[in-house]
């Protein structure tokens, strides 16, 4: 018992142990609610909700009416859960520093490559998020909704997506890191 509690308090687990936990969560999603995990779809639900409130005419299209209906969906609840899960995880290891928590631009590796400026990190984070969300739309899901959820059902789509992630990610890392790759 003490061992388990001490392990929960650790900042970083073995990826194998954390992976088993995620695998069980994936099974539980299907068993308890006949649904899959996902994250990128939730942002589309919220974007549609805001869009329809602000500019209903612009957002009155097939996508926001039928494909990804706006509103607080099960997917949105899942992402809210992920938010609190991250919070609880950090709290158990004493690394929760709300508002003062180190952003990526205080990561030693990030600093050596991009520098410590916050505006630069925020700009890249913003641009990256746009790219990620758009790409997830084309692919049919993100790391959780397609790679994990599709993979556990043995959907070929998931493995094509994972292969694509490396085909896109490796040259990007090479380009950013150059000699320091």
């Amino acid at each position: 018992m003490k061992f388990i509690l001490n392990y929960i308090r650790k900042d970083e687990w073995s990826p194998y142990v954390a992976g088993v936990l995620l695998g069980l969560v994936g099974i539980a999603a299907v068993w308890a609610s006949n649904s899959l995990l996902g994250a990128s779809g939730a942002f589309e639900n919220i974007a549609g909700m805001i869009g329809k409130a602000v500019a209903p005419a612009v957002f009155d299209n097939m996508y926001f009416n039928f494909i990804m209906p706006p509103g607080i969906t099960v997917g949105v609840m899942l992402v809210i859960g992920i938010f609190f899960g991250g919070m609880i995880g950090a709290a158990t290891s004493g690394t929760l520093k709300w508002g003062k928590k180190d952003s990526a631009n205080s990561d030693e590796q990030w600093k050596r490559i991009f520098g410590a400026q916050t505006w630069k990190r925020w700009l890249i984070a913003f641009f990256g998020a746009i790219v990620l969300e758009y790409a997830a739309g084309i692919a049919g899901g993100c790391t959780s909704g397609l790679a994990i959820s599709g993979g556990m059902l043995l959907a070929p789509a998931a493995f094509l997506f994972i292969a694509g992630m490396f085909v896109g990610g490796i040259p990007t890392a090479l380009l950013i890191y150059g000699k320091r790759f």
Partner: peptide, 17 residues
């Protein structure tokens, strides 16, 4: 989609989840 996603992920260091 995966290729563009990989670009975004390597650039930003995160993904939606």
């Amino acid at each position: 989609g995966g290729i563009i996603f990989g670009f975004g992920m390597a650039l930003s260091g995160y993904c939606p989840g």
